[in-house]
């Protein structure tokens, strides 16, 4: 099998919040396409790692990041790197659904709109396409003008995914996207993730090991801010090379 060019290469990534070290010497290649799950107990740095990849960590004033994250041949941690452009290519879905208190249409159109004027007809197409990709179109097509806050939690989360997809990202970061949802909604989001992998590389932080096993191709195990092991999901779950990984995936701690 030919070696696949990684879409993201993380080199020697270290991160501190003030005096607290949160990530230690992370080295990681993420292959393009497919779903990569990031697992590990609470406080192991999963969300923080994710937030480095779209520089959302910049919003924390005390955060100090060192190392390199190569994306498209450039280091995104470089202070010259255009964060706005980065966040268009690297979308993020949060733990709790966070639609804007506006109409469904305006939520999805927000990303394209802040990038400049888009003709109304073209915008309608983008919104429809994004909602279809997020498997929400059929449920909302007759009420695009109603407030996003009237949707159920699961619908809100799919709306947030559609909002990301509307700017055509290459990578989608998902930070425990199902932790606030019921099992039925969770199943729908998981189906959606499986469909999305065709077009976009998904990085999925999850507490739910079954979820990681169900939807991901590769799995990364973090513990105490260190990357313990990464590899194809099958081998991480069945024949982990590190005993700590094995202990975690078999439920001995965490």
């Amino acid at each position: 099998m030919p070696e696949v060019e990684p879409v993201l290469s993380i080199r020697d990534l270290n991160l501190r919040f003030g005096d607290t070290r949160v990530l230690f010497d992370i080295d990681l290649d993420v292959t393009a396409g497919g779903v990569t799950a990031i697992i590990g107990p609470s406080g192991s740095g999963k969300s923080t790692l994710l937030r480095c990849l779209n520089r959302m960590v910049d919003l924390v004033p005390v955060a100090r990041v060192e190392g390199e994250i190569l994306f498209g041949g450039k280091d995104i941690l470089d202070s010259d790197y255009d964060v706005v452009e980065l966040r268009q290519k690297v979308g993020m879905v949060f733990q709790k659904p966070n639609p804007f208190p506006r109409s469904i249409y305006d939520n999805v159109a927000y990303g394209p709109r802040i990038r400049g004027k888009v003709a109304r007809g073209r915008l309608d197409d983008i919104v429809e396409q994004a909602l279809r990709s997020a498997a929400l179109w059929d449920e909302v097509k007759d009420r695009l003008g109603t407030s996003a806050m009237d949707l159920s939690g699961g619908q809100q989360q799919r709306l947030c995914i559609a909002r990301c997809l509307a700017v055509k990202p290459e990578i989608l970061l998902m930070d425990e996207p199902c932790s606030a949802l019921d099992p039925a909604s969770t199943a729908r989001i998981e189906d959606l993730i499986t469909d999305l992998r065709e077009d976009v590389t998904v990085l999925l932080v999850t507490h739910n090991l079954q979820q990681a096993a169900r939807v991901s191709d590769d799995t990364i195990f973090l513990l105490g801010g260190e990357l313990i092991e990464s590899g194809p999901t099958d081998s991480i779950f069945t024949k982990a090379s590190d005993t700590r990984t094995d202990d975690y995936v078999t439920g001995r701690f965490g």
């Binding site: 706005v84 949060f94 927000y110």
Partner: peptide
């Protein structure tokens, strides 16, 4: 104004000015 709105807008690539003015 909840932090979640600001985060969502920033994550979509909004600049600080856009976050303040539109959100």
């Amino acid at each position: 104004v909840p932090r979640a709105y600001r985060e969502a807008a920033f994550a979509l690539g909004a600049s600080r000015r856009q976050v303040v003015l539109t959100h």
